[in-house]
Design a protein around this nucleic acid. Sequence first.
DNA 1: CCTACCGATCGGTAGG
DNA 2: CCTACCGATCGGTAGG
Lengths: 214, 214
Amino acid sequence: MEPSFVEKRPRGRPRKTAQDRDDGNRRQLLISGAARLFRQKGFDATSTRDIAAEVGMQSGSPFYHFESKGALLYAVMEEGMRSAIAQQAGELQKHEHLRQDPRGLLAVLIGNHFNVLLGPGSDFIPVMLYESRAITASQRALLATLQGEYEAPWVPVLQALHDAGLLRADVKLARLMIFGALNWSVQWYDRRKGATLEQLTQAAMALFIQNPPP
Amino acid sequence: MEPSFVEKRPRGRPRKTAQDRDDGNRRQLLISGAARLFRQKGFDATSTRDIAAEVGMQSGSPFYHFESKGALLYAVMEEGMRSAIAQQAGELQKHEHLRQDPRGLLAVLIGNHFNVLLGPGSDFIPVMLYESRAITASQRALLATLQGEYEAPWVPVLQALHDAGLLRADVKLARLMIFGALNWSVQWYDRRKGATLEQLTQAAMALFIQNPPP
DNA sequence: CCTACCGATCGGTAGG
DNA sequence: CCTACCGATCGGTAGG
């Protein structure tokens, strides 16, 4: 039998080095640890003690970096949105040659969105999607601005597809339903089995987009 | 100024009559009150005291009817599924003349699903969709059986549409994405403004179903 | 960032 | 079904 007072963390708490004092290092660690737990167990079911333990801190220490548990949740969401916006912009730039091909552009947007939702390190946006009840109205308003920024490139693409007869539904409702179809994948997609993200993208395109008229 | 000790509920607690002792009456009241609050605030953010107050009981009394808060949540979900299954079966029977028309059948299924999600008294299924993290694995397995029962009529309809060239995506992925598109409406649909459920159904049909080949 | 702690709330129960 | 209550947990803080 091991004595019960052995430390669970190897070598006790992390050593303090000059690096550690480097401002936002620990703060970032808290944000990503919180994102992981919020996604796994939900916001309410995750205690600030859980989060502290996840990153090797004592129970009161998260409050040195964040005013409140809610502020930490909001930080997760905001960081998720900002990085998703940047990632999407990068993909669009990489495929700039598709500028006149709304079909190809939609495939790029959908593929990237699946990556944001289900790819590696993809805890932030699912948390934002499924925990928005837990933030304040003014935080929700701030996030809505970022969401508008994220959705902005989709609008002309969907409109062009509509005009070309490749997307028959009302553009606004189509956008809401397409995002629903994609966002829901968080509930059922299993990385280890089933389709790849590319196959998901192809299926989505086949589902939403009409056969080009001959 | 009104004195602050006035009772908020008219006439104090409800009188005990022979009706009230009628077994499942209070139990049902608890289930639907809990459904309303779970949907509004989420499972974790709703206390059993909130639920008791919602139906005019004292704080300990819900536990006379349910073993635990979790059992009450499960009761909400199971009742939601059973009633959705029954409602769907009724709609299909009412439109039996569409037996050879998979397009028409899908419109019936989608229209009914929007009603289950967004229609009057529609708290149960949204709770089931968005609080499944809070139930046990064996409860989840029981619900999965009911969900399979609910989805069963969709499968041959989608397969027939696929065979007819009206649905191009892989049938299983199409089903998952269609449910996603519909279920997500819980997050954005506002009964007071925007489209009717019929318009939603039409938009969904236009989005998913190809133009019939000439 | 840790230690030690507080007040509030919560799910649940005994006893009637 | 109510009254009175318990133990546990939680978000958060003072003081170092």
